[in-house]
């Protein structure tokens, strides 16, 4: 049984169909990279997976527990709030814009949700948060406020905040896109380290070299469809589909 599965999802904004019958499933310990041009639907897919958007139709499952399933008309029906609350604890999301809480210091950004949402023991959570801060190379910054940190540091706090919830799977929505090029390295390093620890991750990214390096599987999306999917050495190094080739070629030029 896969840890996460999103099945036959379709989603439109008005007349614009952004997701067309997409199915993705992720096993425990797997690292999946989603690539594709802007507007291809990859971010929307991630937002559907994390329930920031509701699917028009399709099913969403974590650990075999249904967050949403299709009714007789093929429309997505979401589980009751109590079930969703439990399912939400299975995953975390790291945003492109970090979205740290500016009025909380680093430590509180990490600890508040575990203590007040998961109702875990404060001392235990604080201890765990401190070790995550250390792991992210942010020792001594625990009482800094987000705006006192660089973009790279803020994103590391955001990753630590997601990890502090002890998720089974972590989603990344273009985690380095808002950063200056010289700061992307520190984030990629952190993600790479998590991959080595067999953290289950789905990463939407424009960093092709990184995707090839760290992912077990790459999904190429375009126009709301999954165009190509497979091992990174196949999809990125030897794409079979014309659209993938075009995208990667353009990327090589720009990059």
């Amino acid at each position: 049984m896969s840890l996460f599965e999103i099945k036959n999802v379709s989603k439109s904004f008005g007349d614009l169909k952004v997701l067309n019958d997409i199915t993705v499933s992720v096993d425990k310990g797997e690292v999946v990279a989603i690539i594709g041009p802007s507007g291809s639907g990859k971010s929307t897919l991630l937002r559907c997976a994390t329930m920031l958007e509701t699917m028009d139709s399709g099913e969403l499952t974590y650990h075999g527990e249904k967050a949403a399933s299709n009714d007789a008309d093929g429309k997505s029906v979401y589980a009751p709030a109590s079930a969703l609350r439990k399912i939400k604890s299975y995953y975390g999301l790291v945003f492109q814009q970090f979205n740290l809480f500016p009025h909380y210091d680093v430590l509180k950004n990490l600890c508040d949700a575990p203590i007040h949402v998961q109702k875990r023991n404060k001392t235990e959570v604080t201890k765990e948060a401190m070790s995550l801060i250390k792991k992210m190379g942010l020792e001594g910054k625990e009482h800094y406020y987000p705006q006192q940190l660089s973009g790279g540091q803020q994103q590391r706090v955001a990753i630590a905040r997601a990890l502090c919830m002890n998720p089974d799977i972590l989603f990344f929505d273009e985690p380095t896109s808002a950063l200056d090029p010289e700061l992307t390295g520190e984030i990629l390093k952190v993600i790479r380290q998590l991959a080595q620890e067999h953290m289950t991750m789905v990463i939407v990214t424009h960093e092709m070299a990184f995707a090839r390096d760290v992912a077990d599987r790459v999904i190429f999306m375009d126009g709301g469809y999954i165009v190509e999917e497979g091992r990174p050495e196949d999809v990125i190094s030897n794409p079979t589909e014309e659209r993938t080739k075009r995208f990667l070629a353009r990327f090589a030029e720009n990059g």
């Binding site: 994390t50 329930m51 920031l52 609350r85 939400k88 604890s89 995953y91 975390g92 999301l93 945003f95 814009q97 979205n99 740290l100 809480f101 949700a113 007040h116 949402v117 998961q118 905040r161 919830m165």
Partner: peptide, 11 residues
């Protein structure tokens, strides 16, 4: 994004 971050964290 503030609301979205909070939602994903389960608030």
């Amino acid at each position: 994004g503030q609301t979205e971050a909070a939602t994903v964290l389960g608030y």
